[in-house]
């Protein structure tokens, strides 16, 4: 499995405040990867380090086998809040892309603009949030990068615009076969499009894996209250909660759990992610504010 992004002890500090602290992860290529985590987990900082907008304070980062630099034709990036040039028209943005990228796919850009119903003569400053996101995605995608990084691209969109955006993203991956890493603090945004998931809490990877694997290996166990130390080999406790009489556990296990004393349920992706997030709460280093824009 080749890697799209490798981070090793990656740290980014602003003065004494650290936005990303000793982060180590490996994101495989050829997937649509969802990067989930609470606000302040370091997602934005990680993505900006990956596209060369930021330089790490310490540690190592490799993107597509090389140290990231801004201006690389290999990596596309759609920043948080999807900035566009307010004074330029939609058509101007495409001309900019054509002038600034040797690998520019004008046909793709034109087709996508028509598909999402943008008027080329419209000033970008007058576009709605959803239209702006579509424009930013089009500019990033028509560059034909091998890796496309999206930083909370749908956070500001209403549900309909969100669906349209994700739809467009899926079409792109089907057509172009580019690797995509997108971050979000909402699992619901990701589970429709992602086939690989990374949960990042306070700069630490809590869990990473293919979505199908995650769904198959996580179980919710409900039974009478008991000690949780004796789960057995090959089982890892993710989260636990207890009442007077009952214990509820979220367990990761490669083998199916056949134990009549437990009632075993399947979990959906959101439950799994929430279990990892709440299971991690309180034991990580200090939470930091959402990273620098």
């Amino acid at each position: 499995m080749t890697s799209a992004l490798i981070a090793d002890g990656l740290t980014k500090r602003y003065g004494r405040r650290s936005a990303l602290n000793d982060c180590t992860l490996d994101i495989p290529a050829g997937h649509v990867v969802g990067l989930v985590g609470p606000n302040g987990a370091g997602k934005s900082t990680l993505l900006q380090l990956a596209c060369g907008l930021l330089d790490p304070t310490a540690g190592r980062i490799e993107v597509l086998g090389a140290r990231p630099v801004s201006g690389s034709p290999q990596v596309g990036f759609v920043a948080q809040d999807t900035p566009v040039y307010a004074g330029l028209t939609v058509a101007d943005h495409l001309r900019m892309g054509a002038h600034l990228n040797p690998s520019w796919d004008a046909a793709l850009a034109k087709r996508r603009i028509a598909q999402v119903g943008l008027d080329p003569a419209q000033k970008a400053g007058k576009l709605s949030g959803g239209q702006r996101a579509q424009l930013a995605l089009t500019v990033a995608a028509a560059k034909r990068p091998n890796l496309l990084l999206l930083d909370e691209p749908v956070a500001a969109l209403d549900p309909l615009a969100r669906r349209n955006f994700l739809q467009g993203l899926m079409e792109l991956t089907a057509e172009q076969g580019m690797s995509i890493v997108m971050s979000s603090h909402l699992v619901a945004d990701l589970e429709r499009v992602c086939d690989h998931l990374i949960v990042l809490v306070a700069s630490r990877v809590r869990v990473a894996g293919d979505v199908d694997d995650l769904l198959a290996t996580h179980h919710r166990l409900v039974g009478r209250r008991r000690d949780t130390a004796d789960l057995g080999a090959g089982r890892a406790l993710v989260e636990q909660s207890h009442t007077e009489v009952q214990s509820t556990l979220v367990v990761r296990s490669t083998a199916p759990i056949v134990d009549p004393s437990w009632q075993v349920d399947r979990l959906d992706l959101e439950d799994i992610v929430l279990a990892y997030m709440s299971g991690a709460a309180g034991d990580g280093p200090d939470r930091v504010l959402e990273g620098q824009r």
Binding site: Q48, A79, Y85
Partner: peptide
């Protein structure tokens, strides 16, 4: 952030 992610 947009212009720095072009190939320039």
């Amino acid at each position: 952030r947009m212009v720095f992610s072009q190939s320039v």
